[in-house]
Computed example of a mutant assay.
Amino acid sequence: MSASGSALEDILAAPLGLRERKKLKTRRAIRTAAFGLFVEQGYEATTVDQIAAAADVSPSTFFRYFPTKEDLVISDDYDPLMEASFRARPADEPLVDAIRAAMIGPLRQVLASEHDDMLLRMRLLRDVPAIRARSVVEQQRTADMLCRLLAERTGADPGGLAMRAVVASLLAAFSEAVMYWAEHDGEEDMADLLEAALTALADALRPVG
């Protein structure tokens, strides 16, 4: 299992101050300790106290960074990277190309540092009901972020049904690509799978004739 995620950590920490970098380091230490315990003894058998001890922090510190044990699995650094990537795209770029680049580029960054961790997370998401239930909250945050970003670029209503339907379709394609990748033991390139899923979605929605 990848233990450090140092390359991704460097990307995220670069624009941050010393205090924020220390927080990021602590957050990653907690997650690394937790994932090691999950592999060693299983998710259900691992307690917050054990994770805190392994990360050399107090339980109260753990809860400052992760409100629940499930948040260790469902929260990640992908959304901030995706948002920054989308905002950096040229304003006159076709929207579909901007979305594709903003979703796939950051995913490659995450996978380069956290391939094994992500595979573990996706397996836990598939297998642990409590994690699946908690993931709904995180999915809604991602959906709200995407609605806001696309609305800024298009001038559409971020809370309108059309926007919500588009974003829901994008997230469904992402979810299916990730789960397909996990079901096949992470052997294929997840970013390529996501690109194929987004292409399939675009093709299905393209007018006939």
Score class of each variant (00 low, 15 high):
4 S>V: 10
12 L>M: 07
17 G>H: 07
21 R>E: 05
27 R>W: 09
32 T>G: 13
37 L>Q: 11
46 T>Q: 12
47 T>F: 03
48 V>T: 15
48 V>Q: 11
49 D>T: 07
52 A>G: 07
57 V>K: 13
58 S>W: 04
59 P>W: 10
65 Y>Q: 02
67 P>I: 00
68 T>S: 08
71 D>M: 09
73 V>T: 11
74 I>K: 07
77 D>G: 00
80 P>L: 04
80 P>D: 04
81 L>F: 05
82 M>V: 12
86 F>W: 01
87 R>Y: 06
89 R>G: 04
89 R>S: 07
91 A>L: 13
94 P>A: 11
95 L>W: 09
96 V>T: 10
100 R>V: 06
106 P>W: 04
109 Q>E: 13
111 L>M: 15
112 A>Y: 00
112 A>L: 03
116 D>M: 01
121 R>I: 01
121 R>L: 02
123 R>C: 06
124 L>E: 08
129 P>W: 07
131 I>W: 10
143 A>G: 10
145 M>T: 14
147 C>Q: 10
155 G>I: 03
158 P>Y: 06
159 G>Q: 14
170 L>Q: 00
173 A>V: 05
174 F>W: 10
180 Y>C: 09
182 A>I: 00
188 E>L: 14
194 L>V: 10
195 E>I: 05
198 L>N: 04
200 A>K: 10
201 L>E: 14
205 L>P: 00
